[in-house]
Nucleic acid binder design. Structure first.
Ligand SMILES: [Zn+2]
Ligand SMILES: [Zn+2]
Ligand SMILES: [Zn+2]
Ligand SMILES: [Zn+2]
Lengths: 147, 147
DNA sequence: GATTCACATAATAATAAGTATCAAAAAGAA
DNA sequence: TTCTTTTTGATACTTATTATTATGTGAATC
């Protein structure tokens, strides 16, 4: 955990930003809730438990900054809120999501799976892919058992 | 065009909704701008050219209704606005998008391309896929030529 | 034809996510 | 120290979307 914070700190300073206490507190919340998909409001409430004086705008600014540095990815699942997802270190591509339409759970797929599709798209549509967003909507394994 | 409206009318009445003049005007705008990715506001402004008395809330309600009936798909490209995309008639799956990070153009991929990936996901993650969203972000063919 | 009644609409108020503003504080540089 | 730049917190604001409500409409019943 500390080493990941150190590396994020280096990414920030490489772009001449500082890892202020507020930014560090925000990053810690993201690291401690890595499997969740937190909204800015979620992050704000969690950060405030440890750093009660932080402002909401600062959290938004920090998340925006981390997004620009590709430390986090910003995603929309269609519920009207942006969510922030730590990018796996060294991951070339953003991971995929399984959104359950029954219970709302969001699971992750870390495997790429899209290599072949992307090769076709690059070639046939002459499109230079920089990033992707892939989300499946359906019934998760838990809800299938419940029926 | 008229036949497509007729079929949408049947879909509506099948769910005991009526194709009111306002709804028909909205559907016509969607049909006439099928390759665009219009926001609710865009649709509203276009509908109002022909039907000046329509209200914005009615457009929102109609788009919501059409979305529930799977006549349109609602998508977010991350710019803070929902966009509404007519589903191809008879298409089992929603088509994919290429969003250019240079010029903002949005192109479509009607081919499915995901059969293999979905088979893997269904099996390995035991997830029953009902729908998907796939968007690639990158440089479109036009912007590659421009450099 | 007049009367219900359920649905649909327009206008507008309300909500909520996100952004802009700005003065104060913190952090460096000199 | 003093000067300068960056960052922050509070808050005002913007904007997309939803809720409310009174009005309208058209089929069904009397
Ligand atoms: Zn589920
Ligand atoms: Zn994720
Ligand atoms: Zn382009
Ligand atoms: Zn499309």
């Amino acid at each position: 955990m500390e080493s990941r914070i150190d590396r994020i700190k280096k990414q920030l300073s490489g772009a001449s930003y500082k890892l202020t206490p507020q930014r560090e507190a925000t990053v810690r919340v993201l690291l401690e809730n890595e499997e969740d998909h937190l909204s800015a409001e979620d992050v704000f409430l969690l950060v405030r438990e440890k750093s009660p004086d932080i402002g909401l705008a600062t959290v938004y600014r920090t998340l925006e900054l981390l997004n620009e540095l590709n430390v986090v990815d910003k995603i929309q699942f269609g519920d009207g809120v942006s969510r922030y997802d730590l990018r796996q270190e060294g991951a070339a591509h953003f991971h995929h999501h399984l959104v359950c339409i029954e219970c709302g759970a969001v699971d992750e797929i870390q495997e790429d799976l899209l290599e072949d599709v992307e090769a076709i798209v690059e070639k046939k549509w002459n499109f230079r892919i920089k990033d992707h967003r892939l989300t499946f909507h359906g019934i998760c394994y838990r809800c299938q058992e419940d029926k």
